[in-house]
Structures are given as C-alpha cells and as structure tokens.
Design a protein around this nucleic acid. Structure first.
Ligand SMILES: [Mg+2]
Length: 272
DNA sequence: GACGTTAAACAAC
DNA sequence: GTTGTTTAACGTC
C-alpha cells in the first residue's frame, strides 16, 4: 500500500470516510458546478420526469396481467414507456440506469423476488404493497484490520469470527456523519443475520479527524444495539455519549472484565 | 435528517 | 454478460 499523502486530500463534509482528492484549481479558484436538479431537469425531479425508479418499477410490474415481471421485462417496459430511457438502450448508455433499477429492486422491501416456476428461467419480481417501510434490523458490520494511511477504496472483508481490541477500536472510528445513518441504518436490507456471514466494513483512513460529533443518536443507538456488549444497556450508552478516547477505554474495560469475550447477536466473540 | 440517484465491488450463474 | 446484493457518496429539500 502506498503511503498516504495528506496534502493531496481533504476530508469530506458529511460521510467523511474517504478523503476527497483535492480539486484542481486555477488562480486559487475551485470550480463549482451550478446545482439545481429541478432547474437542470426543466422543473422535473429527474431528467426523465417526476417518477422515481421505484415508482417506475411499480408501474411496470402492475402493468403486467400477472402482476409480475422479470428484470429484463422491467427494462423493456421502461424503455418502451419512458422516452428518456428509450434513447439509452445500448449497453453503454443503459448501464447506469439498469444498475439503478437493480439497486432499487434489491433495496426496497416491497419488491420481492419469486422463483420462476420454469426451471432455469429468470426470477419474477412482484410487489408486496403492504411491505412495511419500517426499518428491519440489519446485520452487523465488522471492524477490520488497522492500516497506516489511505486504505484502498475497496470493500474490506474479513471472514474471521474473531475480533481483537484493535479491530474494535477501528470499528469505533467509523464516522458518524449523516451518511452513516442513511447508508448504514436506513439503507439496510437483511432482516435476518446469517449464521455464517462474512462482514464488510470500510474504515476511515487514519488521516481524518476521528473526534467528530455524534449525530442521529437514535439511529446509531439502534445500529449499535446489534453490537450488544453483554446486554448491559448503560454500557453501550457510553459508546454514543462520550468521546472516542473514553469510549475506547470503556470498551477495553468491558472486555477485560468479561474475560475477553463478549456477545454480538447471540454469538460469542473473542478478543485476541 | 430524510429521501432518491449514481457508482461500483463483488458473487453467483 | 446478466442478475442480484451491498456499500458508499452525492444532490436536494
Ligand atoms: Mg427487494
């Protein structure tokens, strides 16, 4: 891994996981793109109109007599019914919006996948109109190994059932910006925590300020309730209410007291 | 702070 | 190459 050059990066305002590469500037002036989606889109929310992807998918599926469509059929419906996409059908210009369609199908609870009754045929997508909008519990993200400087922008994965104190410390360095609550707490998918799951977690590079203010206490609390240190309520309160150094000390204390083991989601974790 | 879009890693086929 | 899941970051209100 190359050394991280702090000079070339600036921290991000919100998510603050990966530092932003310094923008090129001329005469000290950084270019600013004029923003206003509505204006840019001629008074519409999106370049194709006011329907969101999720609404388009819903329209598509309901338009079918059986109330079900394959992914390819959803694409076709969108291409046929929305002029903007009708002009973006080749593999290059359709890659982005098709990606978004798939993302929406996976993300939203109300889109449900049904096995095709014909062997080896593509799945049906159906709509569960009563699917709750309420958050389902997501699986726990894990810590990962520490590293110096910039971490490659790649999903980090560990397969181990073991966490050591350094990994816990790293985990707690996850920045608590509003994107944290959005991406980690709202954009969840799984309601069931698989037994043999692997963990994904990206860490902030060491360059950023880890003493960020903690916002969105409710969501974070909910998130950390998965990270349940022996079910002692006031133990994990400290994770939110106190600063980083104090939190780390608290964690260390809990771990020491409990003989280097603790419980996450009903599983026993060992601290090396 | 919430919602939606976009990009992309990655797995499975 | 397609389908599907997931994480991350950005734009906007
Ligand atoms: Mg879904």
């Amino acid at each position: 891994m190359e050394a991280f050059n702090h000079e070339e990066y600036i921290s991000r305002g919100r998510c603050n996981t990966w530092p932003l590469q310094q923008q090129p500037h001329i005469n000290g002036e950084v270019f600013q793109n004029p923003k206003n989606e509505m204006q840019k889109n001629g008074g519409r929310k999106n370049p194709w109109g006011n329907r969101s992807y999720a609404e388009l998918i819903t329209d598509a599926i309901y338009s079918s007599p059986e109330g079900r469509m394959t992914l390819a059929q959803i694409y076709e419906w969108i291409i046929y019914n929305v002029p903007y996409f009708n002009q973006r059908t080749d593999s290059k210009s359709s890659a982005g919006w098709k990606n978004s369609v798939r993302h929406n199908l996976s993300l939203h609870n109300r889109f449900m996948k049904m096995q095709n009754e014909v062997q080896a045929k593509p799945s049906w997508w159906i709509i569960n109109p009563s699917a709750s909008n309420t958050k389902t519990r997501r699986r726990t993200a894990s810590a990962s190994n520490s590293c110096e400087g910039m971490r490659p922008k790649a999903k980090c994965r560990i397969e181990s059932d073991q966490l050591n104190i350094q990994q816990i410390k790293n985990f707690l360095q996850y920045p608590y910006g509003s994107d944290f609550s959005h991406n980690i707490c709202r954009q969840q998918v799984n309601s069931i925590i698989p037994i043999n799951h692997s963990f994904h977690h990206q860490l902030a590079p060491n360059s950023i300020d880890h003493h960020q203010q903690i916002s969105n206490t409710e969501n974070i609390h909910q998130y950390f309730s998965n990270f349940n240190l022996n079910s002692q309520e006031n133990e994990h309160k400290t994770i939110f209410d106190q600063d980083q150094e104090q939190t780390l000390q608290d964690i260390q204390e809990i771990i020491n007291r409990d003989q280097n083991t603790f419980n996450v989601n009903g599983r026993l974790w060992y601290c090396g």
